[in-house]
């Protein structure tokens, strides 16, 4: 069995080299499949990343009346922090708010002048709340305004963003849903194309399979070279696609930077290249091997 196994693998390697054009064509089809799938997965990843970034930038601020004591505000903060849907609560004191305002408008004479005129700090302390799921803002708002703290709170600026938050929420959900549907469809289509192109390859081998069986080759001896060939298609396709990632990432990286996203594609690829390569190779090899196995089956009957 050992010698046969070795020989079958070798035969597969030889077939791969000898059928140069057929090998290139089949490898390309698998490569394209992998590429399309990876691009789509990448898009899904980037879009969830971008949406996450945007989500992080949306927060709701609760403003406290100027007479609210520090203890009370701390209590509210603590209460918020133990809520499971709350990701982060940031406190801005009245002084901090004033400082930030001054800094922001340091070149604006009118504002600087009016602040000096008022003397007293007109700003309110605030808590900026970040949640995991934007749809939860409303329930937080209800809790705060209807609950025991309602006398402390002067306003929440959730209402101002309500439209945007809800819209964003919808967009995120539909992108995830539609994205997955598109990916599934395309992957199914590509797998079918791959399977068919390997089936065509096997079709050209049907005479060979007949001969192999006539000289007394066991089914596994017939199968192994073809499965080896399928694995090689997948392997080369995966390597090819993986190599393409770097130029693509370097090409796209500037667009991400210019749109203000903190996402260095090349660095990201560097860090995850082993995983990317692993996934591509397993995907390609699996696709090649399984397609070959199924395609050769019909010639092994009887």
């Amino acid at each position: 069995m050992d010698a046969s196994f070795h020989r079958a693998i070798k035969a597969g390697l030889k077939n791969f080299v000898r059928n140069g054009w057929l090998s290139i064509a089949t490898t390309s089809v698998i490569g394209l499949t992998l590429f399309i799938t990876s691009i789509l997965l990448g898009l899904l990843f980037v879009s969830s990343y971008v949406l996450g970034e945007i989500q992080d930038k949306i927060s709701v601020s609760v403003y406290f009346k100027t007479n609210a004591s520090q203890e009370k505000i701390d209590e509210v903060k603590k209460d918020l922090e133990i809520m499971p849907e709350v990701k982060k609560v940031e406190y801005t004191s009245r002084d901090d708010a004033l400082m930030m305002l001054r800094e922001k408008y340091q070149n604006n004479e009118v504002i600087v002048e009016s602040l000096r005129e008022i003397r007293e700090n007109p700003l309110e302390a605030s808590l900026s709340i970040l949640v995991y799921d934007p749809s939860k803002y409303e329930s937080i708002e209800n809790k705060l305004i209807a609950g025991k703290y309602k006398d402390l709170i002067s306003k929440m600026d959730y209402s101002d963003h309500r439209g945007e938050i809800e819209r964003l929420n919808k967009i995120i959900k539909s992108i995830k849903k539609v994205g997955f549907l598109i990916i599934l469809t395309l992957v199914a289509v590509s797998v079918l194309v791959t399977f068919n192109s390997i089936r065509l390859t096997m079709y050209t081998y049907r005479a060979e399979v007949e001969i192999m069986r006539l000289v007394g080759a066991s089914n596994w001896f017939v199968r192994l070279p073809f499965i080896t060939e399928g694995i090689l298609y997948g392997l080369f396709a995966a390597l090819l696609v993986s190599v393409c990632w770097y130029p693509l990432a370097s090409y796209l990286a500037p667009f991400f930077v210019s749109s203000g996203l903190q996402l260095d594609l090349v660095e990201l690829l560097n860090q995850n290249f082993i995983y990317v390569l692993g996934i591509e190779i397993s995907g390609g090899v699996l696709m090649g091997a399984v397609s070959s196995f199924i395609a050769i089956r019909r010639y092994l009957r009887a």
């Binding site: 030889k14 060979e208 001969i211 007394g216 066991s218």
Partner: peptide, 22 residues
């Protein structure tokens, strides 16, 4: 019914490879 991608020698050797000869 020869294997077109194999040489004379390989075509004949194939029948032995199949039966696991050394």
């Amino acid at each position: 019914k020869l294997l077109p991608a194999r040489t004379t020698y390989e075509n004949v050797a194939f029948a032995l490879e199949v039966s696991g000869k050394s």
